[in-house]
């Protein structure tokens, strides 16, 4: 990694959850890296481990979740740190949270505390990481709120419940940008807002990301969002990364049967009203009883008996930037 220019590199990350019912391998060996100013999309069905991956990076997983394996290497100006080796509530990770890496969650309704003003919640982050005066922090907050297109003077003293969902998500973006992080993780930022707002939020994210040369990890199950926003994409299925490719390549030349299924299950505009949507057959298996071998094999149209149900495929190179974990491309 020393000579490589990636900002964040995740290697064989495994995050497991423990409960009375058993162990859930929410993230089970994920690898990816992202460069400065680059946009990476992470996509997959609900429950595939996208959000847990994001939470693991900032060490925010709930108490019953534990990172079992892997490295999360973050390169800062001075040095490279392995976030996995830090204490989950220690000083070091706290200096990274909100300052070097910010995260936007999907629920704009509950992401702010309802009894504090928007302003006080943003000023708090600025003062925490930059140690400036209240006045300076307030001016900076006004700037940020303006930047995300809110009428800053009103929004800064408003309570979250008096703002609409879209406005809250803008305020959330303003808060996540308050210390100009080098990496922004957006965990389904548009899932809970309606379509017109979605477009605005995405536009805003793209504009800011370009302006500030920030790296952006966009977590979504919406393929349209991926094609709009991302340079490259990682597809996840049941805690594993099954395909990596540049966005254009992924949409024009998907390799993994699961990726193909995902792309086919979206209606296409130019094919008119009576097109057949091909759903992926079967359902996502219970996380407590994962299939043997490739976890996609029970739903896979190209299943090779004796191989896919016995062995776990590793990532095979299709070309330099395109990797897929499927025996078809061995």
């Amino acid at each position: 990694m020393e000579n490589d220019k990636s900002l964040l590199k995740v290697e064989d990350l495994k995050t497991y959850f423990y409960s009375k019912e058993g162990t859930v391998k929410a993230v089970d060996g994920v690898n990816f890296s992202i460069n400065r100013g680059e946009t990476l999309g992470i996509a997959g069905e609900s429950g595939c481990g996208k959000s847990v991956t994001a939470q693991s990076i900032l060490r925010l997983t709930p108490k019953n979740g534990r990172i079992e394996n892997g490295r999360i290497l973050l390169r800062t100006d001075e040095k490279t740190v392995d976030l996995v080796s830090l204490k989950a509530s220690g000083d070091e990770i706290r200096k990274i949270r909100g300052k070097k890496i910010s995260i936007i969650f999907q629920e704009p309704m509950t992401s702010f505390s309802m009894v504090h003003t928007i302003g006080s919640q943003i000023i708090e982050v600025i003062r925490l990481h930059q140690g400036c005066t209240r006045k300076e922090a307030r001016d900076r907050t006004l700037e940020l709120l303006n930047m995300v297109g809110l009428s800053a003077e009103q929004a800064i003293d408003a309570y979250p419940f008096s703002l609409s969902g879209g406005m809250r998500q803008r305020a959330m973006i303003a808060m996540s940008l308050s210390c100009m992080p080098s990496l922004l993780i957006a965990d389904e930022p548009t899932t809970a807002v309606d379509v017109t707002i979605q477009a605005q939020v995405l536009k805003l994210l793209r504009r800011i990301q370009k302006e500030k040369q920030m790296a952006l990890i966009m977590i979504t199950h919406d393929l349209a969002v991926l094609s709009e926003l991302c340079d490259k994409v990682m597809i996840m299925y049941l805690g594993k990364d099954v395909e990596h490719a540049p966005t254009k390549e992924l949409f024009s030349n998907p390799k993994h049967p699961y990726t193909k299924g995902l792309l086919n299950s979206v209606p296409k505009l130019h094919q008119g009203p009576r097109q057949k949507i091909e759903a992926i057959k079967g359902t996502v298996p219970s996380p407590y009883a994962l299939p043997t071998g490739c976890s996609f094999h029970p739903r896979c149209p190209d299943f090779i008996p004796g191989l896919c149900d016995k062995e776990i495929p590793k990532l095979f190179d299709v070309d330099e930037n395109h990797k897929v974990s499927c025996f078809l491309y061995q």
Partner: peptide, 26 residues
Amino acid sequence: SKAYVMVARAKGLSERKVLYKYPFRI
């Protein structure tokens, strides 16, 4: 268990501050 607690933690606040400024108040 509400989202704003994780948001507060993601800001880099100390566990103490996360607890007393937000969920405790409510």
